[in-house]
Amino acid sequence: MSCCTNEPLSQIARALADPIRCQILDLIAGGDGKKSVQCCTTGMCVCDIQEALNLKQSKVSYHVKELKNAGLLHERKRGKWNYYSINRNKLNDFCNELSQRFSLSEEKAGS
């Protein structure tokens, strides 16, 4: 698993700690319930995120870069547009690692 060491784990946790980044992930995952994709057939581009969240392009680009650097987004270039989708494997690995590291086993709970 690629996110088992402390540094990648911390980088993902920092990326997820920002409310704007969580909104971006929700939007890309389709969790907002809106039909917001306009220029993309799969994934979302910065222009769609910008419009949906009413944020400046530079702010959206910064947050997308942080999510991408943490490994939480896949990027696909098509023509002049970059499309982003959730890296579900990385997110699942992160959740599994947190669960394994910090959950109490029945043995520990009984001590």
Rank of each mutant, 00 (worst) to 15 (best):
D18K: 07
P19T: 01
P19D: 07
I20Q: 09
R21N: 05
C22Y: 08
Q23G: 06
Q23K: 15
I24P: 05
I24R: 05
L25S: 01
D26W: 08
D26F: 08
D26R: 11
D26K: 11
D26A: 13
L27P: 07
A29S: 10
A29P: 00
A29N: 08
A29V: 00
G30Y: 02
G30C: 01
G30A: 01
G31C: 02
G31L: 04
D32M: 13
D32E: 11
G33I: 06
G33W: 04
K34P: 07
K34N: 14
K34R: 15
K35T: 13
S36Q: 13
Q38R: 12
Q38K: 13
C39A: 14
C39T: 14
T41A: 14
T42D: 15
T42I: 13
G43Y: 05
G43F: 00
M44P: 07
M44D: 07
C45V: 05
V46S: 14
D48V: 03
D48G: 06
A52W: 00
L53D: 03
L53E: 01
N54D: 15
N54E: 13
K56E: 10
K56F: 05
K56V: 07
Q57G: 08
Q57D: 11
S58Y: 09
K59Q: 14
K59P: 03
V60R: 00
V60A: 00
V60C: 04
S61N: 07
Y62R: 15
H63G: 00
V64D: 02
V64T: 05
V64F: 02
K65F: 08
K65E: 11
E66A: 13
L67V: 01
K68P: 06
A70G: 03
A70P: 05
G71T: 01
L73T: 02
L73Q: 02
H74Q: 07
H74V: 05
E75A: 11
R76Q: 12
R76C: 08
K80D: 14
W81D: 12
W81A: 09
N82G: 07
N82Q: 11
N82A: 12
Y83R: 15
Y83V: 12
Y83A: 14
Y84F: 10
Y84H: 06
Y84G: 04
S85E: 01
S85A: 06
S85P: 00
I86T: 03
I86D: 02
R88Y: 11
N89R: 15
N89M: 13
K90V: 13
K90Q: 13
L91E: 01
L91C: 02
D93R: 08
D93N: 09
D93S: 11
C95N: 13
C95P: 07
N96S: 14
N96V: 11
N96Q: 14
N96Y: 14
E97D: 10
E97P: 06
L98Q: 09
S99D: 09
S99T: 12
